[in-house]
């Protein structure tokens, strides 16, 4: 239906995660969980898909003996997001002057 739109980003949670990551240098898993209002399992699954696509970097470490996941957007992810937004604009017939 929307064949030019990146299927990786055409999911609410993945798109929300990418939108958040664009505004931060890196994000904590729990902060992403709060912002996306999804479940831990679903977020892990969506992060895995974004990671497989090369859109995000995932660093697993420990803080006070608890596992900690730090996520950041990659250059590929940033470019994919830009293209995605441009394609949305095309579909919605938006241009720079009326957005």
């Amino acid at each position: 239906m929307f064949k030019d739109l990146d299927p990786i980003l055409s999911s609410p949670v993945r798109l929300a995660v990418m939108s958040i990551l664009l505004t931060v240098k890196h994000a904590h898993f729990n902060d992403l969980l709060k912002e996306t209002k999804t479940t831990q399992g679903n977020l892990s699954h969506q992060l895995k898909k974004l990671h497989e696509a090369g859109y995000i970097q995932i660093e697993k470490t420990f803080k006070n003996n608890y596992p900690l996941t730090i996520v950041s957007i990659t250059e590929i992810g940033t470019n994919a997001f830009k293209v995605y937004v441009e394609n949305i604009k095309k579909y919605l017939h938006l241009n720079e002057n009326n957005t």
């Binding site: 739109l5 999911s11 798109l15 939108s19 664009l22 505004t23 902060d31 937004v85």
Partner: peptide, 27 residues
């Protein structure tokens, strides 16, 4: 958030909502 494939207007709405509501004073 549902797991459906998003329509363009839904995508735009999500981006706008997330960017405007994301806290910028993290830690």
């Amino acid at each position: 958030m549902s797991k459906n494939i998003l329509a363009p207007h839904e995508s735009l709405a999500i981006i706008q909502k997330v960017v405007s509501s994301t806290r910028h004073d993290y830690h």
